[in-house]
């Protein structure tokens, strides 16, 4: 089954896992997803290959961004009614703290969904959910569905 067909499945934990397995880069980074009380938690397990600053050590800032972007994309697919693959328009990322070599987590909010454009906010943290390592916003273009 290709990705365009897979997104038509109901977004439970199994489906999210199938989606992530289908994206080579998400597999490469090791991104996982869990569903807790109906909300989706994305996980980037700590891995030395993701390090950008070996002296701290800290995870590469770009990888934190890529993780949040992937989380935002799949969150949007899971939440919207239309069965289309969103296309990212732009991505804005604020780094608040270094992401240490530990597991990172992300949760998303669908801030606004119009007919053609969606705005998703993403928060990433490590040990303490109230002390995020990064905040991001993404705009997505929603291609015309079937």
């Amino acid at each position: 089954m290709n990705l365009a067909e897979l997104i038509k499945r109901p977004p439970d934990a199994d489906t999210l896992s199938l989606w992530l397995q289908k994206v080579p880069y998400a597999v490469h980074l090791g991104i996982r997803a869990e569903v807790h009380d109906g909300d989706i938690l994305f996980i980037l397990p700590a891995d030395r290959k993701l390090v950008g600053n070996p002296t701290l050590p800290a995870i590469h800032g770009g990888v934190v961004g890529a993780f949040m972007e992937q989380a935002g994309t799949f969150y949007l697919i899971a939440r919207m009614a239309a069965l289309v693959l969103p296309k990212i328009i732009n991505f804005s990322l604020d780094y608040l703290r270094p992401a240490r070599l530990r597991d990172s987590f992300a949760i998303c909010t669908l801030t606004r969904q119009g007919r053609q454009i969606a705005n998703v906010s993403i928060t990433a943290w490590q040990d303490d959910r109230t002390a995020p390592v990064a905040l991001a916003r993404a705009h997505f273009l929603l291609p015309d569905g079937d």
Partner: peptide
């Protein structure tokens, strides 16, 4: 590299990879 693909239906690189490269280059 094939590991960097974001859309397996088209073979196009993941936008997150571009984020990594731009973060690195601008930095």
């Amino acid at each position: 590299r094939p590991e960097l693909i974001g859309n397996p239906d088209t073979g196009v690189i993941h936008s997150g990879v571009i984020t990594v490269l731009l973060d690195q280059t601008l930095g």
